Amino acid sequence: MMNDPAKIWLIIALLGVGTYLIRFSFLGLIGDRPIPPFITRLLRFTPVAILPAMVAPLVIWPSATGGQTEPVRLIAALVTVVVGLTTRKVILSLVVGAVVFELGLHLL
Rank of each mutant, 00 (worst) to 15 (best):
G67I: 06
L14A: 13
L74N: 01
G84A: 07
N3K: 10
L15Y: 06
P71L: 09
I11F: 11
V48T: 09
T46Y: 11
P47I: 01
S63N: 13
D4Y: 04
L74H: 04
R33D: 06
L74Q: 03
T69F: 08
R88E: 08
A98H: 04
F24P: 02
A6M: 14
V83Y: 09
V83A: 08
L94F: 08
P5Q: 00
G18T: 04
P62S: 01
I60V: 08
R73K: 14
R44C: 10
T40M: 12
I12S: 11
L92W: 01
L103E: 02
T87I: 00
P57W: 01
H106A: 11
V17L: 12
K89T: 11
F45M: 10
H106P: 03
P5G: 00
L74F: 07
I30D: 11
T40H: 00
M54K: 12
L107M: 12
K89C: 07
F45W: 13
L94R: 00
Y20G: 01
T40N: 12
R33M: 11
V100C: 02
I91W: 08
G104Y: 00
V55W: 04
I75W: 02
V59K: 02
M1D: 07
H106C: 06
L10H: 09
M1S: 10
L103Q: 06
P62K: 00
G18R: 03
G84H: 07
F38Y: 12
L85V: 11
L108E: 03
G31E: 05
E102H: 14
L43W: 08
G31C: 07
A53Q: 06
P34D: 15
P47Y: 00
P52D: 01
L27P: 00
F26S: 15
P71M: 09
A98M: 11
N3I: 12
M2E: 15
R73N: 13
F38C: 03
